[in-house]
């Protein structure tokens, strides 16, 4: 697997990360190095081996259906760049 400049530009856009045009080529090289390194795993035969989802075989912790949070709009909005009438305010989003 090998990434070209266009793919890197696309990934950056999807991740909303601004990457200058002249940085795309070097970044593609770096990412390809990482991919190449990870691809070494393909040398191991994993036929019939179920994927490991956790290093510890444990049951996920579950919560009961109890309301024990919320009611703190002020704290939730504390970091908002802009707020009004207890809403977050963002630039107009129109589909």
């Amino acid at each position: 697997m090998s990434l070209d400049k266009d793919t890197v530009r696309r990934i950056a856009t999807l991740a909303r990360i601004r990457v200058d045009e002249d940085a795309l080529e070097p970044l593609a090289g770096e990412l390809n190095n990482i991919l190449g390194w990870v691809e070494q795993l393909n040398e191991v035969d994993t036929e019939g081996v179920p994927s490991m989802t956790s290093v510890v075989e444990t049951e996920p912790f579950k919560r009961s259906d109890t309301v024990d949070d919320g009611g703190k709009a002020e704290q939730v909005l504390a970091n908002a760049p802009e707020e009004a009438e207890q809403f977050f305010v963002v630039p107009k989003v129109v589909e």
């Binding site: 802009e82 009004a84 009438e85 809403f87 977050f88 305010v89 963002v90 630039p91 107009k92 989003v93």
Partner: peptide, 13 residues
Amino acid sequence: VHDRHPTKTYIDL
């Protein structure tokens, strides 16, 4: 919510 402000969108989570 798009109708509370002419140039802004309001978000309720």
